[in-house]
Amino acid sequence: MRHLAKYIITRTLLTIPMVLILLSIVFLVLRIMPGDPVSSMLGGHAPEKVIEQKKEELGLNEPMAVQYVSYLWQVAHLDLGESMVFKQRVTTAIADKLPATIELTACGMIITLILGVFLGAYAADRRRQVQDSMIRLYGIVIYCIPVYWLGLMLQLIFGIWLDVMPIAGRTGPRVFASTFEQTGFYLIDTLLIRDFAALKDVMIHLTLPAFTLGLTLSGIFIRLTRANMLDVLKADYIIAAEARGIRHSRIVYRHALKNAFIPILTMMGLQVALLMAGAILTETTFSWPGMGRLLLERIYLRDYPTIQGVIIVFALIVAGVSLVVDIIYAMIDPRIRY
């Protein structure tokens, strides 16, 4: 256990340079992108003088290096500046939307994992049998379907034809916001006040978007799990366990799956970025009031500070998840810790 603690500390410290690099990339990309934030903000015909003044105000006339340092300084203090369009701190805008996105992506990921890992392992166990072919076919098809198309189809089928699911928003009108908002995670909020009718409403609203996201990514996980399982099932320790009389199901779903899970976990860390991208599209399809929608809205408005803030938060999430993934990895695999 001492080794594990040491590993976690080292790994956490290593996240710092990673975050620095991510922040630098965000800074650079936003500044070399075409388009001048100030003139777009003030409209194309603003007089030169006004533009200059505004630039001065925003510190855009400082040398790049000075801007860079003050940018890092601000981010280190959790200050993402002020929106250029609304009178609003960027952090406030984000804090308002972040829980919605996390709730959606977390549920999406859980669906992906359960479906992908279980179906992948089952397919590997039933290699070359009908079940295997069906699961692989599903994996390929779902992988090819674009996330927004899948979202639209689910809306059409469950929201319109069958008319059993809402197709937009996080809640119905009856339980609309603020009456229960504490953490911003509606699943938790409704549980905290024990309003089960509201909880049910929140869950119903979450279902289609979470499945859209979860199904989309499940294809990759099926393929990955199946391939890893096939490898692991060939390992000597599997046949050795069989030789000791251990039940087949236990061998497949404990011995083999645990070993196959390690690369899956790594993949999960890498997929978070994709998940975020998927979330942006899903949020748009389902009018989900999250970070993705915030980002798109502000891109239309050329609200550079907010855009930058959202991207920074996405980057931090990716870095954070990869940290967590590596720690779980070390907890599963004793060989990593030493």
Partner: peptide
């Protein structure tokens, strides 16, 4: 057959490193 394996008839293999599950103590 499951009851025989391990209980009545045991088998050991060439490579003891790969014959033990690396993730279990």
């Amino acid at each position: 057959v499951l009851k025989l394996r391990g209980r009545r008839i045991a088998m050991i293999f060439q490579d003891p490193l790969t014959s033990l599950n690396p993730l279990f103590s």
